[in-house]
């Protein structure tokens, strides 16, 4: 019995046999630790790393999350080993999704969780080692080019307790001219609500 699975074969493989799961945190001597998301939103991610010679030597993780979160973090934990901290720090969720052979549209936001937790773990490493100067403020990307509203604006809106698109539009005027960005804005809103909701 096959039936088309919701996800790609690659997602299925990593979902079935997730790699690098953190067994017992107490026994793992991490150089950096990052935890994002919340259980009440349905997903939470913990990523721990070991660093050697400025490169990621090991990456392990745990999650309370769906198949996309599990598969994307599993593949990410393989991808980042051997990367320099800088390379890993700049890893893009799109790269992870590409490696997975794509995710259904409404599931893409789940894949950013692993990436966010990794960033947090690297930043934790920088802080522990007095390298705060390496921490980059995330670059804002313009979402609504008519009204010049960025992803940062949407993130801040959610952080301040904002919830729906209508409210966001009232506050930022996003998507009130050509409306081309509405789909992307909705996805971002969805994703940030997962992280901060």
């Amino acid at each position: 019995m096959s039936g088309n699975w919701l996800y790609s074969e690659k997602v299925k493989e990593h979902f079935k046999n997730p790699k690098n799961i953190l067994d017992d945190e107490d026994k793992y001597d991490s150089d950096g630790r990052g935890e994002v998301g919340s259980i009440s939103c349905g997903d939470q991610m913990l990523v721990v790393i070991k660093v050697k010679d400025n490169k990621i030597a090991d990456c392990q993780w745990k999650t309370y999350g769906c198949a996309s979160a599990i598969a994307s973090t599993s593949i990410m934990s393989e991808m980042v080993v051997g990367m320099t901290l800088k390379e890993a720090y700049r890893l893009n969720p799109d790269d992870i999704v590409r490696q997975l052979g794509g995710l259904p549209d409404h599931k893409v936001h789940c894949s950013i969780l692993g990436d966010r937790a990794l960033r947090a773990a690297i930043e934790d490493y920088y802080r522990r080692n007095g390298l705060e100067s390496e921490i980059e403020p995330e670059e804002a990307k313009v979402v609504c080019s008519c009204m010049n509203v960025t992803d940062k604006d949407i993130e801040n809106f959610v952080k301040a307790g904002g919830k729906d698109l209508e409210e966001l539009q009232k506050k930022t005027t996003l998507g009130t001219v050509c409306g081309n960005c509405i789909k992307e804005a909705k996805e971002l809103l969805h994703g940030y609500k997962h992280l901060y909701g």
Binding site: I39, Y64, I70
Partner: peptide, 8 residues
């Protein structure tokens, strides 16, 4: 549960 952050 073994891989869950919520069950540890």
């Amino acid at each position: 549960r073994k891989m869950s952050t919520a069950y540890r």
